[in-house]
């Protein structure tokens, strides 16, 4: 529904990719690891390869979790915006459909957080 207003109500979305100076936002949610309270929000280049993203961005972000050393990103299960997704390491993020404000959901079977409590 449109906004009820006393005059024409014209707005622009504030977070279009054009506002991010050539970069884009990518979110990652690591299932059953709620020690990280919410999905991560990363600012990355759309041209970064997925392998680069894993090594330089995601790996450092999760390093403090005791399960982190046992995570193999290529063997994990992935969703991209809720759909099944097979990562291709040498291809750029955008080229494999990981566009601005996409969310990757990472499931690591066998790893269920601190004391198995999904933390």
């Amino acid at each position: 529904m449109s906004v009820k207003a006393i005059s024409d109500y014209i707005t622009q979305p504030k977070d279009t990719v054009a506002n991010f100076n050539g970069m884009q936002v990518v979110y990652v949610y690591w299932v059953k690891h709620l020690m990280y309270c919410s999905p991560f929000a990363f600012l990355v280049s759309p041209d970064m390869t997925l392998a680069g993203f894993f090594a330089e961005v995601l790996r450092p972000a999760i390093k403090d979790h005791p399960d982190s050393t046992r995570v193999n990103f290529m063997e994990a299960q992935w969703l991209l915006n809720g759909q099944a997704f097979s990562p291709t390491p040498e291809v750029a993020l955008l080229a494999q459909g990981i566009d601005h404000k996409s969310m990757l959901t990472l499931t690591t079977p066998g790893l269920s957080g601190i004391n198995g409590c999904a933390s």
Partner: peptide, 17 residues
């Protein structure tokens, strides 16, 4: 009312912009 919230000033996105 999507038009009201698409203009939200989200602090994280503002830092990244």
């Amino acid at each position: 009312e999507p038009d009201k919230y698409i203009q939200a000033w989200l602090p994280v996105h503002q830092i990244y912009q």
